[in-house]
């Protein structure tokens, strides 16, 4: 494939086109990803998540600089929400990183969530593979501004930075399930603001009382002010040493295999579902089934088990 050659040679246009192909589910997507697969596995993936306005993009901007100072190539995937009403999107994360726009060692791609609810877009998973195969050393994935349940970023990152800012509530908020559980590094940004020390103490307390499996690595807290560039060096060092630790302990390999497991079962699920729906001509008959259920002529569970019997007769021997 011509496109694959372009990507592995680091051609910017090829990479950009490839991301559009996977984003729009265009023809050739599966073949493309299969061809790229042998070239992946060299990049480290950092996830950046946190509430809207916490400073995720500004932090990414500073971390890009750190990586560039060391000669690393960096790709950023920045996700912003799509409108549930019009499907439109205003992608504004890039604005904070525009000083790197003309640097050939930096590739920034904005993505709209396109109805996906986990905090990233479905295509972000595959976009990571494209940048990996294209030779970017570090790939940062910035989520939309999250609330409490958008935790999908753990499924594609080697390390997750959860960016928090003072003034979000007491330690009970920090003890809740969901987003507060997914950070490997808790970044307390805008640390020059009032309440930063208290937030740090609260997160420390919550981490201290959390039960965690013995083999899982220590979580870290880091105070930053991305705008003033303070704390960035410390954060960068934590990122480096954490990566090294996780690599040596085998934790990273385990994590990456878990990610593959999830991806493969997801693919199975999608493909099986497509296949079965076609076998049962679900689309063509849905309206009449619904009519029957609405009029109480059909019992939903009895109906489903009959349909399942139809399938088993056809596909299971014996």
């Amino acid at each position: 494939m011509e496109l694959v050659k372009g990507i592995t040679a680091g051609n910017i246009r090829s990479i950009a086109r490839a991301v559009s192909i996977i984003e729009n589910n265009m023809e050739g997507k599966e073949e493309l990803l299969d061809e790229l697969h042998p070239h992946t596995g060299n990049a480290v993936v950092w996830g950046i998540t946190g509430p809207p306005g916490a400073g995720k993009s500004t932090l990414a901007d500073k971390l890009i600089q750190k990586e560039r100072d060391r000669g690393k190539k960096v790709a950023v995937i920045a996700v912003d929400p799509s409108s549930p009403f019009t499907g439109g999107s205003l992608l504004g994360d890039r604005l904070r990183m525009q000083t790197h726009a003309t640097d050939p060692g930096v590739f920034i791609r904005s993505m709209a969530s396109r109805g996906h609810l986990g905090g990233i877009s479905t295509a972000a998973f595959d976009a990571v593979k494209i940048f990996d195969a294209a030779g970017y050393d570090t790939i940062m994935v910035e989520t939309i501004g999250v609330g409490q349940t958008e935790v999908e970023i753990i499924e594609l990152s080697d390390i997750v930075m959860l960016v928090l800012v003072p003034g979000m509530g007491d330690e009970i908020q920090a003890m809740k399930a969901g987003v507060m559980e997914i950070g490997d590094i808790f970044v307390i940004n805008k640390s020059d603001r009032e309440g930063a020390e208290r937030l740090k103490a609260e997160v420390e307390y919550v981490l201290m009382i959390s039960e965690k499996p013995e083999e899982s690595p220590q979580k870290t807290i880091c105070m930053t002010s991305a705008r003033d560039n303070t704390g960035i060096e410390e954060l960068y060092e934590i990122l480096q040493s954490k990566y090294k630790e996780d690599l040596e302990s085998g934790f990273l390999t385990e994590k990456r295999k878990r990610r593959l497991t999830k991806e493969l079962s997801n693919l199975f699920y999608i493909k099986t579902r497509e296949f079965l729906e076609e076998q049962l001509s679900v689309q063509a008959q849905m309206d009449s089934w619904i009519e029957g259920i609405y009029k109480k002529e059909i019992k939903p569970y009895k109906f489903i088990s009959e349909k399942m019997k139809e399938l088993t007769k056809e596909y299971v021997k014996g």
Partner: peptide
Amino acid sequence: LKDAGYEVIYTGIRQTPES
């Protein structure tokens, strides 16, 4: 344009033709 359903990438002020 966002409201019209497009995906808009906004880059802000003081951009060079190169960027």
